[in-house]
């Protein structure tokens, strides 16, 4: 949930505010995830003084899990370092991605470039087992607080404490990302982003370095997406290319469109609504499976795609700009005027 919020906020910053249609959100998300999984797998062995081994084997997977369950120092260190590196790598790839963005005048070419880049990423990581264990993915990335179970601290060593703590950590990061994007967008920088989005040529004749601004927004957005990838891998326990497909990217797009462009609160609402649909259909399919034997649960499971599309269509008809309206950049500049810039 928090992860979807971060991803939607990131996309909203790039497209809603910056006008950069990122169809490769899964690329930045997946890069963060794989960077995390690869780093964690290797770092755990280093910090726990194990001999280095092939990270794809079952033996290494079991070893990783046992380190995570018993060695808090190694686990947390690997967690933090992989997080920092993922964000950094995400920022770097974002910068690299802005390079074609500066050369295509029509921003939808950028969408195509990133869409293809994301496809290439999944294909390479699926078929080249030396990078990310191929189709199996890198598994055995335990919750960074799993070691709490081996401690003698009451309550915290129960089997439901550590997932809750990690959920809290994800929520905290989602909140941080919201504050970050909200501050970024309600500032002169936010004003600049919208100006470049609406008319880059006019913005450049007003002395705005359009290329630099586009690069900046891609760097920030993709760093956030990679952050989400890092959080996700530690939550789900595996980095698998199946989770980073283009259809995932489009789910994030639906969340953003649903919530409303250039509105950070809208992004959160969009993410919430879609997550809710996902959960409900999942619960529905499980229930049907349990009570109506012989009924194909996939019908309900896949109905989420139908519901998503239906919701999108209804929205595009009745509220094409999303649930929440685009918010005006409200810097304190308005307070200089008599009525303080209050909306009538």
């Amino acid at each position: 949930m928090g992860i979807y919020i971060i991803l939607t906020l990131s996309l909203n910053l790039e497209y809603g505010y910056g006008g950069q249609p990122n169809f490769g959100q899964a690329l930045f998300y997946g890069m963060g995830a794989f960077m995390t999984a690869i780093l964690t797998s290797n770092l755990l062995f280093v910090f726990a003084h194990y001999p280095s081994a092939n990270i794809c084997t079952i033996t290494s997977l079991v070893q990783r899990e046992s380190i995570a369950a018993s060695n808090p120092v190694a686990t947390l260190l690997a967690w933090v370092i992989s997080g920092l590196v993922s964000v950094l790598v995400g920022a770097l790839i974002g910068f690299a991605a802005s390079y074609p963005a500066l050369r295509v005048r029509e921003e939808w070419y950028l969408a195509m470039v990133l869409l293809v880049a994301a496809q290439i990423f999944t294909i390479i990581f699926s078929y080249d087992a030396s990078l990310g264990c191929g189709f199996d993915g890198i598994a055995g990335i335990s919750n960074p607080f799993a070691w709490l179970t081996s401690t003698s601290i009451p309550i915290l060593n129960s089997s439901y404490a550590f997932p809750s703590i990690y959920a809290g950590v994800i929520a905290l990061f989602a909140y941080l990302c919201y504050t970050l994007t909200e501050r970024l967008t309600s500032s002169p920088f936010g004003r600049l982003l919208k100006a470049v989005r609406d008319d880059w040529l006019a913005a450049s004749t007003l002395g705005k370095n359009v290329n630099a601004i586009r690069a900046q927004v891609m760097v920030i957005g993709s760093a956030m997406a990679s952050l989400a990838g890092w959080l996700y891998v530690y939550y789900i326990g595996v980095a698998n290319t199946a989770d980073y497909t283009s259809s995932f990217t489009f789910s994030i797009w639906v969340m953003m469109i649903l919530g409303g462009y250039a509105n950070n609160r809208g992004a959160i609402i969009g993410a919430l609504v879609l997550t809710l649909i996902n959960e409900l259909t999942l619960v529905g399919s499980t229930l049907i499976q349990a009570y109506i034997p012989g009924f194909n649960p996939s019908v309900v499971n896949y109905s989420k795609y139908l519901l998503e599309s239906l919701l999108l269509l209804i929205l595009l008809i009745y509220r094409p700009k999303g649930l929440l309206k685009e918010s005006r950049i409200r810097t304190p500049a308005y307070t200089v005027f008599k009525d303080g810039g209050e909306e009538q």
């Binding site: 004003r191 919208k194 008319d199 004749t205 005006r328």
Partner: peptide, 11 residues
């Protein structure tokens, strides 16, 4: 005129 029509006069 190439103004930013989605934004306010002040902006």
């Amino acid at each position: 005129p190439r103004l930013f029509f989605g934004m306010s006069v002040l902006e």
